[in-house]
């Protein structure tokens, strides 16, 4: 277990690159790229047997199935509070460069740091990577059971031959969703967040590395089903797309305003069920616009296919508007080249 955050080994898991392309389905296909992933490059503090402490930071994640044990060399330069090599304990390394018994060295430090700054830095790196390659990333967010994966599968079929597609699937556990997407032929990679309630930009950065989406493609990031936390975590996407199913109630935008405020598009899903429900479409849209006056709305039924073409056209238009100088590969090339 990690002594900093208390996360257990193997909590965050990203599937292997081979599996994401559907080439390998071997048993136990999930492997631990990140035995634990920290949201930020947190420092680990260690306590040695002699009672001295040091900490070291690491900006990367690393697989390990044990508690930290590392060569002395890695920590040698990180002993910052006092030195204890060669039997010397030197308290002159403290904040005030001196130590007097009974006198504390308290002082104020102004830092003015954005708490989500680390996540935002990873998100900016993801965005720069995607922009360079003309890849439109869409972060799909909704409550669990709104039909995100079903909609995605139908949408991928609709986009076939028009745009190359790749998918990052986020769930607490299982790779069921990635398998459903791979059945369409699109490359997909599953990220299991373990105890986490949202994807963060660091996890998505690793997933993009493994997935290697094609230049000029659209990358769907299906977030963990949760209308609360994913609103705060930028992943580097071009747009958040919030999916609200008509079985959920038209006041959801008011109950979970952060998510609807962060989204550029609201997809009203399962519209084929409207005849059986009291759901008021007008009220749902009005509520969403109270929270976010500029939100776009598209009603869609994945079952009947109603509205799917409009959604596919919105995605293609969004890609063109984001990258006017980077046209999508010709449709013919996609059909032949896969």
């Amino acid at each position: 277990m990690c002594t900093v955050c208390g996360c257990g080994s193997g909590e965050t898991r990203i599937e292997s690159a081979e599996k994401s392309n559907g080439k390998s389905r071997s048993a136990g296909g999930l492997f631990l790229t990140n035995a634990h992933v920290h949201a930020a490059d947190q420092a680990h503090e260690h306590v040695h047997a002699d009672g001295t402490r040091h900490s070291h930071g690491h900006a990367h994640s690393h697989p390990h199935d044990h508690d930290h044990a590392h060569a002395d060399a890695t920590g040698a330069d990180a002993h910052e509070y006092h030195r204890h090599d060669l039997g010397l304990i030197d308290y002159g390394q403290g904040p005030a460069r001196a130590h007097a018994p009974g006198l504390t060295q308290a002082r104020m430090v102004q830092i003015e740091q954005d708490i989500l700054g680390k996540n935002n830095a990873y998100a900016a790196a993801n965005r720069a990577f995607l922009d360079q390659r003309g890849i439109l990333a869409l972060n799909l967010v909704s409550s669990p059971g709104s039909g995100k994966t079903t909609l995605l599968v139908k949408l991928i079929e609709r986009l076939h031959g028009r745009l190359a597609v790749a998918v990052i699937e986020g769930d607490q556990q299982t790779s069921n969703d990635a398998e459903r997407v791979r059945a369409t032929g699109a490359p997909a990679i599953q990220v299991n967040t373990g105890k986490g309630c949202h994807l963060d930009a660091h996890m998505v950065g690793h997933a993009i590395e493994h997935l290697a989406p094609k230049d000029g493609s659209v990358l769907f990031i299906e977030n963990v089903g949760n209308l609360v936390c994913p609103a705060a975590f930028d992943l580097g996407e071009a747009h958040k797309v919030v999916i609200l199913s008509v079985t959920e109630g038209e006041d959801k935008p008011l109950k979970y305003p952060d998510m609807f405020a962060a989204a550029g598009l609201m997809v009203l899903s399962k519209t084929d069920l409207l005849p059986h429900l009291d759901f008021d479409v007008g009220a749902a849209i009005a509520n969403a616009r109270k929270v976010n006056p500029s939100i776009k709305v598209l009603p869609v039924s994945a079952r009947t296919g109603d509205g799917l073409d409009s959604l596919a056209q919105w995605i293609m238009a969004a890609r063109t508007m984001s990258f006017p100088a980077h046209p999508a590969p010709a449709a013919a090339a996609l059909v032949q080249g896969g």
Binding site: G57, V109, I115, L116, C229
Partner: peptide, 28 residues
């Protein structure tokens, strides 16, 4: 429950700043 992730981020910043500004304890 993303307050846990937020707390971890805060601790990460405190530890980074400890290296930069050489302090060993955060009181407030």
């Amino acid at each position: 429950m993303h307050e846990m992730a937020i707390s971890e981020s805060i601790l990460g910043i405190l530890e980074d700043e400890a290296r930069r500004q050489s302090y060993r304890r955060v009181k407030k």
